[in-house]
Design a protein around this nucleic acid. Sequence first.
DNA 1: TCCGTTAATGCTACAATGTTGCAACAGAAG
DNA 2: CTTCTGTTGCAACATTGTAGCATTAACGGA
Lengths: 157, 157
Amino acid sequence: MSAPSHPHSSHSADVQDPRSLIAACGGRVTRTRVAVVETLQAGRQPLSHDEIGAALAAAGVAHDRVTLYRTLDWLVEQGIARRIASGERAWRFEIAHGEAHRHAHFHCERCGQVVCLDDVPASATPSLPAGFELDRAELVLHGACAECGRQRVQDSA
Amino acid sequence: MSAPSHPHSSHSADVQDPRSLIAACGGRVTRTRVAVVETLQAGRQPLSHDEIGAALAAAGVAHDRVTLYRTLDWLVEQGIARRIASGERAWRFEIAHGEAHRHAHFHCERCGQVVCLDDVPASATPSLPAGFELDRAELVLHGACAECGRQRVQDSA
DNA sequence: TCCGTTAATGCTACAATGTTGCAACAGAAG
DNA sequence: CTTCTGTTGCAACATTGTAGCATTAACGGA
């Protein structure tokens, strides 16, 4: 598949060695974990379980469905990956680039794709009712992406 | 029996007759639909399928699981209800109070409850990449609600 | 009030996504 | 190389949501 070289994208700017990332968390460096981190780093958008599984298979990394679930859970727990509720039923995952780099996401309701909006902060720290403690905010915009929007215009023409 | 047709009032002020709401959409007024709308109107927070089903059962309204799914889909389609991705796997539903009344939601990660933040607008209409068309925005804050936050303090004490 | 039409319902079966328990394997340290 | 234990793989299950189709009942008209 594609090489992780996208100089304009903030995503690929700080690609760290998966092995170091994993070892730094005190976890064992296994085939699956390395491959999943590499896949997430290479993907410029949040990926679903299915997509990650397909990437592993394509890379020749044998794996079980459950292992993938557990691997992703672990990566999220360690703060290496981040889990996103895309608006569909399945979770999507992306590499975490530090707290400062939280951003909103756009979900295309035609093609189902989710893209990162690196420039849009996830929240404006709104005021909460007394006693509520904010952990994190998730902002998801829904609509049609550029590709699908174009198709729609053509459809109605 | 006729309710005002274009409400712009606040949350508690515009509880409309479920039968009128349903009939106004050209749908048949059935037990299930009426009971679901009443349940949503009575609940001050977005409710899950399960919770709505339990409410129907408690009210003595027999229903099938599939019927409930279809009823809710229909209500969302008609703009009577709104579907919310709570951050868990299941959808939640609330009565729609007009476009102007869109608001953010808070998801408590301890008790799983979702509460409406009526004062927090769903989005500040952020700038999208060229060609993207925004349909709607969903802002979900995650953390601990007042009740659970209190418990946590007691836990560690 | 009764009747016919057809939107809604209820059932069964199925699909998609995620979880649990446990035996077997393999990464890392000695 | 051996040991210890974190990970994996498998099978079975749980939850959430859909599809197809025969039956029921809402509602307008006779």
